[in-house]
């Protein structure tokens, strides 16, 4: 696995994966739909697969003395690393952003980048990965269509969340705030989000690897 990860970093990862990490700084913007910063991560994931397709990465990897499913596992690790890096880098920007926000009402364009928000981001990542990876590995070359489906799913997910948080009063009170008193409501969402992400990633890997097994290269 170490060698496959070395291969991923040396050959497979598109530079945008690192560049887009800087977009965690979008959380400094006073009023902004903060989920956007994390949609860029998924775009970077798509670029990795696109680059891989153009470079015949799947054939190269499988020709090496490795199990086919391990090439999928390595790619899953890379995606988890990038997504976690994006979230971890976003935390200081979220805190600083909330402190320096000149709007008395906070973020006017959506949910605050608070603890609950990060829980929702984990679920958004789980949703994207869960659709994109198994679909991509059905063919190991169709990179575009899985993006259409996965993007549509996360767009619907974000829209539903924002509408719910803004229009349902108790959700607005509990979730769209930096008040420390609401942490008891928000921390469970983060914990559940992390849990969903972990379980979904494991299932995603299994399904993607199973799909890839049957692909003729």
């Amino acid at each position: 696995m170490k060698d496959l990860l070395y291969k991923e970093f040396k050959l497979a990862i598109h530079p945008t994966a690192f560049i887009f990490l800087s977009l965690s700084a979008l959380l400094l913007i006073p009023s902004y739909p903060y989920y956007i910063a994390f949609i860029y991560t998924d775009l970077a994931v798509f670029f990795i697969f696109l680059l891989g397709r153009e470079n015949q990465d799947a054939l190269f990897s499988v020709s090496l003395p490795v199990r086919k499913r391990d090439t999928v596992k390595a790619r899953c690790y890379v995606i988890v690393l990038i997504e976690l890096a994006q979230i971890i880098l976003a935390i200081p920007f979220a805190i600083i952003g909330s402190r320096i926000n000149p709007n008395p009402l906070g973020n006017l364009a959506g949910i605050e980048a608070n603890v609950a928000f990060f829980g929702f981001v984990f679920i958004m990542y789980a949703l994207f990965n869960g659709i994109y990876l198994p679909m991509f590995y059905k063919s190991a070359y169709k990179a575009g269509m899985p993006l259409v489906f996965a993007s549509a799913a996360i767009a619907a997910y974000i829209a539903a969340l924002e509408v719910a948080v803004q229009s349902i009063p108790f959700l607005k009170t509990y979730l769209d705030t930096w008040e420390t008193g609401m942490l008891s409501r928000q921390i469970p969402i983060l914990v559940v989000g992390i849990g969903i992400y972990a379980v979904c990633m494991w299932l995603t890997y299994r399904k993607a690897a199973k799909n890839f097994e049957t692909v003729d290269l």
């Binding site: 060698d3 070395y6 291969k7 040396k10 050959l11 090496l64 003395p65 490795v66």
Partner: peptide, 9 residues
């Protein structure tokens, strides 16, 4: 670069 990756396996 490709050699440096391949040989590790």
């Amino acid at each position: 670069t490709i050699t440096s990756v391949t040989k590790r396996f």
